[in-house]
Amino acid sequence: MADEPRKIAFICSKGNLDMAYPALIMGWAALGNGVDVTIFFTFWGLDLINKARVDHLEIPPVANTSMKMSMMGIPGNLGIPNIMGVLPGMTAFATALMKKKMNELGVPPVREYIQMLADAGAKLYACKMTVDMMGLKKEDFLDGVQDIVTASDFIDMTEGAQIIFI
């Protein structure tokens, strides 16, 4: 048993740009340390592996109390008022800002990250129920996605794994 590698499984349920990265970053770190990685994409999380959606993930400033002006270089702890967040273009603006900051840190876009994880041996699965509900097919997903599986399959294949829900 001592030779069994540690196993981590992530459940990605969110499709916003900021919520896409935690599993990708931790999953990549885990693979680099020799940990077995499985990622199950469910509900909005399917956007991360959906060819038509993956390059268009966004971060909305509305109802996000952590968004501060300081992110745009204005000092202090001043929040972006929610009423401003509903203005046309604010979501696109926040998204562009985040993408720029990530790029400066050398963090790849989500599409590339998914490919890196797949190449490094992560097992990527789409949730069957959500896939059926959204009328998607295997061809709609990025090549790194191995299969569409049920919740029960996921439970079976992650026996002994540490599970992180995002």
């Binding site: 770190a29 680099g32 340390n33 020799g34 940990v35 790849p108 890196m116 190449d119 490094a120 041996g121």
Partner: peptide, 23 residues
């Protein structure tokens, strides 16, 4: 990622050359 982009070694190859935790 610095290694794969800098040395021009694809991710798959890096994980094959140094299996189980290349970092």
């Amino acid at each position: 990622r610095t290694i794969t982009t800098g040395a021009g070694v694809p991710t798959k190859e890096l994980f094959t050359l140094f299996p189980k935790g290349p970092a």
